[in-house]
């Protein structure tokens, strides 16, 4: 059984039905730990030591966040900047998170269709997520396909619950399955 760490970043979680549904679906799972970054570091003063110690203990990491301006909210970027330290996460001696699995779980207001070469946003989500992918790669982690909850502006209650269940299934699967398939280009369609 793998241990899963969900690094959750939402500056106004109290207003996000979508993220509430996602978090609620996984919050009582065994071996799944959620770190609510905006609650832990309201002043952006991320405790590097503590975060590294936590990170080290888990096998699968989830960056769960809304997709703001084709990226993550600033506190998650701050977390990446401070915690994935040279000499610890990468570079000489930076071996402590090698071999872990990581992926983004994002929510977007727009539907999946707008994230395509023909759509309004002109690029696919996996293209937008390249910086995360490369960050994982540099640290020797396995970057897994993203999880996406789209169209949150108009989503119906049953659809949202269905999506939340999917998320829960994904997390359970990552926790319990013998093997996690790693296919580098799987998500690039």
């Amino acid at each position: 059984m793998r241990k899963i760490l969900v690094l959750f970043a939402h500056p106004k979680y109290e207003h996000s039905d979508a993220n509430h549904a996602l978090i609620q679906s996984i919050e009582n799972l065994e071996n799944v730990q959620i770190r609510d970054l905006y609650e832990l570091y309201p002043d952006f003063n991320v405790n590097k030591q503590e975060e590294q110690e936590q990170l080290f203990q888990y096998d699968v990491i989830v960056w769960q966040h809304p997709f703001y301006w084709y990226s993550c909210p600033p506190l998650l970027k701050q977390w990446i900047d401070l915690v994935l330290e040279y000499g610890w996460a990468y570079g000489p001696g930076g071996v402590y998170i090698q071999g872990k699995y990581i992926f983004n779980a994002i929510t977007t207001g727009g539907s999946t269709e707008v994230y395509s070469h023909k759509g309004r946003n002109r690029y696919t989500i996996s293209e937008f997520l390249r910086p995360f992918e490369q960050t994982a790669k540099l640290c020797g982690m396995h970057y897994l396909p993203y999880f996406h909850l789209g169209g949150t502006h108009r989503i119906s209650e049953p659809d949202l619950l269905k999506k939340a269940d999917e998320y829960r299934e994904l997390i359970i699967q990552l926790r319990d399955s013998e093997l996690i398939p790693i296919e580098p280009n799987l998500q690039n369609h």
Partner: peptide, 8 residues
């Protein structure tokens, strides 16, 4: 209340 909201 949410910490970051209160902080702001």
């Amino acid at each position: 209340f949410r910490a970051h909201t209160v902080h702001r």
